[in-house]
Design a binder for these strands. Structure first.
Lengths: 146, 146
DNA sequence: TTATTTGTAACTTAATAAATTACAATAAAG
DNA sequence: CTTTATTGTAATTTATTAAGTTACAAATAA
């Protein structure tokens, strides 16, 4: 399938809101222009972030605010909101149950895939939105210094 | 996108060959019937496994053999062969370089995503094809005992 | 020879991420 | 109040790509 950028775009939205708060109208249009996507996609993602308790929005007004401090939002929180916790590896569900391999491999792979996913998720949990914002600002400062 | 099952199907192929060697003709047709896919897809995946040095095949003869001992083939080896090392997380490449966020977030996310991927890959590296085969056999034995 | 199978290319189908269009609901400015 | 801007969401279209299908040359083996 076409690979989803919902996770990356959702982090982008949250970082944008934090960085440009008070300096720019935080409309879905302005945010979309920074991401390079459509305002509708931005509003859809913001809707999911709001439902996940990461963002506050006001219907009709361009005043989104983070629902938590950036240090208290992990990338895993954002992943859960944006991709609905989609698994990183895909089990083939069409295997033949009459066959020793086909009849057991789904459960076997499910166990291993889960452990690999937990390892990745643990790493995402250790990085906060604040870390991302800091990294963006440092990279920008280096550009400005040149 | 439609999620790829190439990784799972490739593990299936290798386990099938090891388990049914000598008991069943190892044709792409028989393997495909166990996976629930087409013989062409099986041959395509076997071709990639051969190029990765995991499998030996004979043009015209249904005699594939593992190129290494199952204990010496890790799931990460198979992942590299099957998915060509595709990243687990997707960076949005269309972000606006004029914006502080859009101009720096790709590099920032690239660093974090890479670390999360390394964590998952490390876990896959710790599981061998032999572990998968053992797990399948144990699950089957439990079914037979009922 | 003849039948079987692999290996691969070309094309089609199906699934789905994102874009687009449309519009009701809300907010805010004058 | 009325007008304008905006959010929130549904419905539809477009684009991408994984998998399926068809076709056939090349190799094997009976």
């Amino acid at each position: 399938m076409k690979a989803s950028t919902r996770f990356s775009d959702s982090i982008h939205i949250l970082a944008f809101i934090n960085i440009y708060q008070g300096n720019l109208p935080l409309t879905s249009n302005n945010i979309a222009a920074s991401i390079g996507t459509s305002p509708v996609m931005v509003r859809r993602l913001m809707s999911q972030l709001r439902k996940a308790g990461l963002l506050n929005t006001v219907h009709g007004a361009a005043e989104p605010t983070l629902a938590k401090k950036p240090a208290d939002i992990s990338l895993y929180d954002v992943y859960l909101a944006a991709e609905d916790g989609a698994p990183l590896f895909t089990i083939d569900r069409k295997t033949n149950p009459q066959c020793i391999v086909g009849g057991n491999i789904q459960e076997t792979l499910g166990e291993v895939y889960h452990e690999a996913e937990v390892a990745a998720e643990a790493r995402l949990s250790r990085t906060s939105l604040q870390d991302i914002i800091d990294s963006i600002q440092v990279k920008q400062a280096k550009k400005n210094a040149r």
